[in-house]
Structures are given as C-alpha cells and as structure tokens.
Design a binder for these strands. Structure first.
Lengths: 85, 85
DNA sequence: TTTCATTTGTTCGTATGTATT
DNA sequence: CAATACATACGAACAAATGAA
C-alpha cells in the first residue's frame, strides 16, 4: 500500500474543492495514514494544508462524517472510525 | 390555530440564530402557513426577512431538511414535505 | 476556582458557479 | 439567452466546549 499522492488543486476529478479534499482525505485514511481511532489534524491545520478556507475544509469533513469515515467531537477533535464497529 | 408570532431576534430559547430560525420556520409550517408541497420563499428572501446572512439562513434550512420537514431541490426551490408518505 | 490553550461551532458579507425553466 | 434559485468558496471574527495547569 503506497502513500497517497499529495493533493493537487489542479488535478482532474470531482468538480468541487470540498469533494476533492474529502476524497483525498478518505484515501489517506484508507492508506493507513490516519488509523482507526486516531485524531485527524485540526480543522484549521487541514485548511492550511489544503490551502482552502476553514468553511470549505469543514465541508469536506462533513462529507467524511456522512460516509461514516470519521466522527467529530466538539472541542476534542475529529477521529477516524473503525470499519464495522 | 393562531398565527406564529413574528420572529424576535432577542427572544429566549435556543442559543443559535440558525436554530431559532429553524424552530420558527417549523412552527410556521406546523401552523399551515406553508402547507405540504408548497414552496418556501427563496433563501435570500428568507435571509432578508430574518435579517441574517445567506449562509445562516441556509443552515436553518439544513436543520429543517434534517428533521424531514422540507426538501431542497436545486434551482427549483425548497418544498414542504407531506407528513408521513 | 480561575485561567489558559486547544479544537470545533457559529455568523457575517460577498463573490462566483451551476442547474432549471 | 435570460431569469431564478440553490450551491460552493472565500476570509475574517467571535462563541462555546473541553481539559489541563
């Protein structure tokens, strides 16, 4: 399992920034970069990393919660869910 | 069934603007002001009426969709769902 | 108890994009 | 093509919850 290529703002794929970021984060999770139960970097850190506004990054996280890949706990962090359980 | 009192930005209740607006809109729906299958006023109109930013009004609508009270159809409008089916 | 740092949550105002009619 | 209506995205500021000091 190779590492997920860095996020490329100009890559082809889903039209919307938040969706591309969600896909990219999902791939990083699937690749084991963020294992089950681990905490993701903070929203603001991720927003900086992906070079988007906070709201846009939050949209991406929202997408991941919708897919059941993460759970968000206020003032605590965003955590990778364990497949199944 | 009396009419829903006008929205009061300073009233007590849920702390968040979007939640108070969602509750207010839900009451208007329940009161029959917006009957099943009817279209709500546009987002911008409602944002003006409630004196909030567009994003905040949209957050309130999101809350209503979560409650199953409305469905949002892009470029068509926001429609009141029919209780049960 | 109070304070502080950390992290997510809300709200604003604005601009631009996309889908439907 | 134009009008309408919802959708995405930006940047900034402030609020609220949590836990540790």
């Amino acid at each position: 399992m190779t590492a997920v290529p860095p996020y490329d703002p100009k890559a082809t794929g889903p039209s919307y920034v938040y969706m591309r970021i969600a896909d990219h984060l999902a791939a990083r999770i699937a690749a084991g970069e963020f294992p089950p139960d681990s905490m993701l970097p903070g929203e603001r850190a991720l927003a900086e990393e992906y070079e988007v506004a906070l709201n846009t990054l939050r949209r991406a996280i929202e997408e991941l919660t919708g897919r059941g890949l993460v759970v968000v706990l206020r003032a605590k962090g965003t955590f990778v869910t364990r497949p199944e359980g």
